[in-house]
Design a protein around this nucleic acid. Sequence first.
DNA 1: GCCCAGGTATAAA
DNA 2: TTTATACATGGG
Length: 284
Amino acid sequence: MQFSYTAVLGGVLLKNHPDFDLSQTLDCGQCFRWFPTEQGGWSGVAMGHSLNIQIQHSDLLFQDISLSEFEQIWIPYFDLAMDYSKIRESLCEIHPVLKQAASYAQGIRIIRQDPWEALCTFIISQNNNIPRIRGIVDRLCREFGSYENGIYTFPTPERLSSLCVEDLAPLRSGFRAKYILSAAQKIACGEISLSEISTLPLNEARDRLTTIYGVGVKVAECALLYGFHRLDAFPLDVWMKRAMQELFGGMNPQNFGPYAGIAQQYIFHYSRQHPELFSEKRAV
DNA sequence: GCCCAGGTATAAA
DNA sequence: TTTATACATGGG
């Protein structure tokens, strides 16, 4: 697979990249700091940088950034060098429903988010809905992030570890506040090392993360998939459990292999848009 | 008002 | 070991 990009007057133009749909990627519940713009593009903050992306036919304009920022920040973030076509081919062999899902959601990419941000935002995600998660994350950054270059960075574990539950009241994060603090404290004091976790086998990494108060298996798997780019992680929420049962005949997610996480994202997105697939229909 | 949300900790069976 | 319930808040 190859892709090309060039510096142009208004930024960097990414030409007709295969397997990259902005809306599918940024609106499939893996990240919470991106918003659609009135021009039909997307705007967001990640890795300490803000970015506007405009859609121009089959190309994407990364507005007002240098070539080096594009290469150093955004190619890794969107994992643009990864060949999703090849992965999809192998996934399609596994199960006909997965083939359906993969072809429907083929523009989704698994973003390489900051590990701490992914962990923290998925702690916030529990028993919560996506619009409200976005609001809480936004308030978290405004209250406790540092203001740099016109944006609020995601607050560090060190910053949050010095706070108490009452301090987090402005977030209106409910019972999750104590979970956020426990995670921040364990990381800030070194009891949990995110860089060490990134070297561990999947099972051990998950077990480490679930020692954090308020982090269960689902949140740990989300953090591993979206924050550590562990593509074999497989977040199993109630929706996905149902999908595995009804659409895949009770199949074990491990059968999806080393790219199970990508399969999960395809299935999650596809089945949410097609509630009629399930015996009892539910609202999207 | 009502239902419920990309769950988890805790108690009870 | 499995199943039920509280949890804070607010989007739709």
